[in-house]
Amino acid sequence: MKQGFLHEIKKNHPLFIMLLPAVILVFVMSYIPMSGLVLAFKNYRFDKGVFGSDWNGLENFRYLFSSGTGWLITKNTILYNLLNLITSQALSIILAVIISEMRARLYKRVVQSVIFFPYFVSWVIVGTFVYNIFNYETGVMNNLLTALGKEKINVYALPAVWPWIICAFNAWKWSGYNSIIYIASITGIDEQCLEAAEIDGANIFQKIWYITFPSIKPTIITMLLLQVGRILRGDFEMFYQIVGNNGQLYNATDVIDTYVFRSLQQNSNMGMTAAATFYQSVLCFVIIIIVNALVKRADPDYALF
């Protein structure tokens, strides 16, 4: 019964033509640059070029793991991303449900705009906010504490609280933006189901739990899978702008991207940079394959591929 690929093309050629630009774009933007990954195994010289430089084995990867930092930053990157993934997605879903339940049109619009706004604020500015809230001498937090007759706290000397601060700002920045996708998905739910539930006497929480959540489950899983694919890429801007050059916080806040940036800022070694990217990409690849396989086993309909 299986027919050839050519037959398939003949039958659906308008569809293939429509697909072509996207395929070309992905090929040019994502597949051709992949050849640059060979740099990770080379001692790059400007005059010899990417493909002409000499091979040097795993030498470029050594600096990532020398003195044991490699595991720490890999662990930090994964944990931060997991934390951020869970908090920002959970918040976005809750926001989306609440906004969808709102009936007053104007109020709904205003709320939506307000929570969407942080998306447009750059991390540079957020970094300044954070400093002005937490700095020891003139920060808002310490001014409040003094006004309440309490001791000042030097937050910048307490690495343990930073994962939560970063997580909070990350959620603040992204949940409004992510909630748009869930709102769209909620809007797509068949009104009849909700009406039927209402007739059956379901209250608002039961409706959300038994109708809304199951209906947006595919969206949630797709969003999670997409985010998991980026789990080894730290949001460089965020970490760099919020933490600055504060060595005291590095053990708690260093992710692969910031470590690589700092180490190579002064040496500009293309091979080492490529090695870090290679490491991130391979780990990301492995993780996404595993997660997708797990999802597929649980419910094949929700898997990405």
């Binding site: 600096y63 003195s67 590095y250 180490s263 190579l264 002064q266 040496n267």
Partner: peptide, 18 residues
């Protein structure tokens, strides 16, 4: 000594600056 030098620079910034 690129690997070691980069690592030292990093340690210097992380521990010496504070």
């Amino acid at each position: 000594i690129e690997t070691e030098y980069a690592a030292c620079q990093n340690v210097h910034q992380q521990y010496w600056w504070p």
